[in-house]
């Protein structure tokens, strides 16, 4: 419901709603402490009372802890940081107005962009996904990541006014 309210009050809410579901989407550490997945699953939980949710999250959490390498966990911390920064910016935009809209957009888009790039890096460096990316070695993935981040930040700085 919180997402809905945001959506009404701000123009950038559409990216925001997706972005708020984004963190839950890809940052697999969210189940434990991240407040964001709650809006989506919480509703049906209240309505349907399916009971299995706790179990689901427990499973996810266990899976995450057991299957994720240390390096990837570092990436996930960065992802969490990006989510927090994005949420903070969005909150500011709602509370204090979006007046320098350029600045808000470039900040927010930069956060979201960096987030998806990091996710991409995470996907490409995960062992289990090797089959999907026959031509992308982890080193290549990291090089791509650096180049894309540079481009992203060039645009952001240029747009910030």
């Amino acid at each position: 419901m919180a997402g809905k309210k945001n959506a009404r009050s701000e123009p950038a809410a559409a990216p925001a709603t997706t972005a708020t579901s984004t963190p839950s989407a890809k940052a697999p550490l969210t189940p434990t402490k991240n407040p964001i997945p709650i809006p989506t699953p919480a509703q049906p939980k209240a309505v349907a009372a399916q009971g299995g949710w706790a179990q689901v999250f427990q499973n996810l959490y266990d899976y995450y802890l057991s299957e994720t390498p240390q390096r990837t966990k570092l990436l996930d911390v960065f992802l969490l940081f990006l989510v927090l920064v994005g949420a903070l910016q969005f909150l500011y935009c709602i509370l204090a107005g979006n007046y320098p809209f350029n600045a808000f957009l470039s900040g927010f888009c930069g956060t979201v962009g960096q987030f998806v790039l990091t996710i991409s890096l995470r996907i490409q460096t995960t062992e289990a996904n090797k089959a999907d990316f026959p031509k992308v070695s982890p080193e290549r993935a990291f090089a791509d990541y650096v180049v894309c981040s540079l481009i992203l930040h060039f645009f952001c700085v240029n747009f910030i006014n």
Binding site: V112, G113, S120, Q124, L152
Partner: peptide
């Protein structure tokens, strides 16, 4: 996952590029 990587990269960078 290839679709995810290519689309999100394109969109995140492309949208910022278009706003220039």
């Amino acid at each position: 996952r290839r679709l995810y990587v290519s689309y999100t990269t394109w969109y995140a960078l492309g949208t910022l590029a278009s706003m220039q």
